[in-house]
Write a protein that binds this DNA or RNA. Structure first.
Length: 106
DNA sequence: CGAGTGACCGCAA
DNA sequence: ATTGCGGCCACTC
């Protein structure tokens, strides 16, 4: 079933991130890995930067649990967005990734 | 079609 | 412990 290669990767990432429940976050590396490309973590961020208004990219953080660098508004905007979702963000823009890391397979 | 860029990750000094 | 560099794949222009 690889006929839909129309940016299959992008569709996969979007679908995955789009299914992240409120109060939970995922790391770029994990998303990329679940997508089938553990080295495509950059692509995930790239797709987010290009635009996908239907996707809560705010729930996507890096492996360090830190917020994205190029988020519109800065880390403070991203932090606010996560807190609005019920995610506890440290003042250093770090989330309890070990606590709220969401696993779709589970 | 080709080239450049990127919201990352991992390792090395 | 901290900082710097490269690599990888996909997306856009």
């Amino acid at each position: 079933m690889r006929e839909l290669r129309t940016s299959n990767f992008r569709v996969r990432v979007i679908s995955l991130v789009s299914e992240i429940p409120k109060g939970r976050v995922m790391t770029y590396g994990q998303i990329a890995t679940l997508c089938g490309n553990p080295r495509a973590a950059r692509i995930v961020g790239g797709i987010a930067h290009f635009g996908d208004p239907d996707i809560p990219w705010q729930r996507v953080v890096n492996k360090s649990g830190g917020l994205a660098r190029g988020y519109p508004g800065g880390l403070n905007g991203h932090k606010k967005a996560l807190e609005a979702e019920g995610v506890k963000v440290s003042r250093e823009y770090c989330v309890d990734v070990e606590k709220i890391l969401w696993n779709p397979k589970k």
